[in-house]
Computed example of a mutant assay.
Amino acid sequence: MAAWMHRYARINHIDMHYVEQGEGPLAILCHGFPHIWFSWHRQIPALAAAGWRVIAPDMRGMGQTEAPADPRAYDVDHTVGDLIGLLDHLGERQAVFVGLDFGILTIYDLALRHPERVRAVIGLENPFPVHDPAISPLAEAARHAKDHFIHIDYFRPYGPADAALNAEPRRFLSKVFYALSGDYRYLNVWSHPPGTAYIDALPEPPPLPWAWLNELELEFFVSEYSRSGFTGGLNWYRAMDLRWEQRRAFEGVKSTPPFYFIGSENDVDLEAWHGDDPIAHIPDHHADVRAVRMLPKAGHMMQLERTPDVNATLVEFLGIIARA
C-alpha cells in the first residue's frame, strides 16, 4: 500500500517536488520524458517494504518541479547539481541511484563527476551515455530529419512542439506511451516523412485499460502535464548539444561506482541509440559491472509493463548492494 509523502524544497535554485516513503539506506529514482515521479509509483512501496528510504523526484522541468524557460538551465551542471542538492537537502552523503531515460543519463553524469556521492547505479534500458565525438546529437537529428520524421529534431525549435503537445496532452501521452511499449515497435514512427507532426506520426493506441496501464494512471500523467505544459521536458532535448560538449572531458572514462543493469528486449533505446550489441559494451563504460538482467517482451515503459519482474530485480540488486 502506498504510504508516501509529498515533499517540496528549494534545491539548486529551483523549487523541487519529490515523493518519499520508507526508512533505511537511501535509493533515489530518476525518471525521463514524458514521465514524472509517478512513473515509479509501483516501485516505491515495494522498495520501501524491502527496507529502503525511497525518494522519487520530479526531475527539473517536469511534474511539480520548477521548469526554467531557458534550455541552458538543463545542461549537465544544472541537472547534476539537482541531484547533489537533493542529497544535501536529505542530509545524506550517498545514495543508490536508479534511473531511466534522461534520468539515468543524469545519474551517469553524476557518477563520473562525483563518484563519492554514488553508492551504486542501477540503470534501466540505457546502459551508458551516448557520446559521438564527431557529431552533436542535435546535428545528427537534423541530418536524419532530412529523410524522415525524428522526434529530437521536431522538439528542437522553441514553441511549435510545445504548443502542439500542450493542446492535446491526453492524446499525446496515450499515443507515445503505447508507442514506447513492447506492444509496438517505436521505430515505425520514423517511417513518416519530414515535416510530420509528432502526434500524427504516433500510432493510434487501443482503448484503455491496457494490460499494464489503466485510465486512472494515465489521467495522473495527463493532469500533471496539463498543468505544467511540456516545455520543461522538451528543454532536455534542446540542451542535448550543451550536455554533449560538457561530456567531452569524460570521453573514454569509465564510471567507477558498482553498476547494475536491467533492460528489456523490445526497448527502442537499446535498439536505436547505443550502437550494435550495447549489452556487450557495458564494460567499456563501467569499471565495476555487478549484474545485467534482460526482461522479455517489455519496451521502454518497463517498470509499468513488467512491474513484478522489475520490482523483484530491483529488490534483489538492492539487497546485494546493502550486503556489500
Rank of each mutant, 00 (worst) to 15 (best):
residue 235 N to S: 09
residue 31 H to Y: 03
residue 214 N to F: 11
residue 174 S to P: 00
residue 83 L to M: 11
residue 303 Q to D: 11
residue 87 L to N: 02
residue 244 W to K: 07
residue 241 D to M: 12
residue 274 H to Y: 06
residue 266 N to I: 02
residue 188 N to A: 14
residue 82 D to F: 02
residue 107 I to L: 08
residue 50 A to L: 04
residue 71 P to G: 01
residue 324 A to F: 04
residue 300 H to Y: 00
residue 300 H to S: 12
residue 88 D to T: 10
residue 211 A to F: 13
residue 171 R to H: 13
residue 272 A to W: 01
residue 267 D to C: 12
residue 284 D to H: 14
residue 206 P to N: 06
residue 63 G to R: 05
residue 109 D to K: 04
residue 62 M to P: 00
residue 74 Y to R: 05
residue 224 E to P: 04
residue 56 A to G: 12
residue 37 W to V: 03
residue 217 E to Q: 13
residue 216 L to K: 13
residue 158 Y to H: 12
residue 269 D to Q: 08
residue 213 L to Y: 01
residue 114 H to W: 15
residue 89 H to K: 13
residue 97 F to W: 01
residue 242 L to F: 15
residue 316 E to M: 08
residue 89 H to D: 05
residue 59 M to F: 07
residue 78 H to Y: 15
residue 22 G to Y: 10
residue 182 G to F: 09
residue 74 Y to E: 03
residue 95 A to V: 13
residue 244 W to G: 03
residue 315 V to G: 07
residue 63 G to S: 04
residue 92 E to S: 10
residue 56 A to V: 10
residue 271 E to T: 05
residue 98 V to S: 01
residue 196 T to S: 11
residue 130 V to F: 11
residue 254 K to P: 07
residue 204 E to S: 08
residue 244 W to V: 03
residue 41 H to K: 06
residue 67 A to M: 03
residue 259 F to V: 05
residue 182 G to D: 00
residue 15 D to I: 15
residue 213 L to T: 01
residue 254 K to H: 06
residue 195 G to Y: 04
residue 285 H to C: 06
residue 269 D to M: 10
residue 283 P to C: 05
residue 31 H to Q: 07
residue 19 V to E: 11
residue 8 Y to F: 14
residue 27 A to T: 12
residue 226 S to C: 09
residue 149 F to E: 05
residue 85 G to S: 10
residue 236 W to I: 00
residue 100 L to P: 01
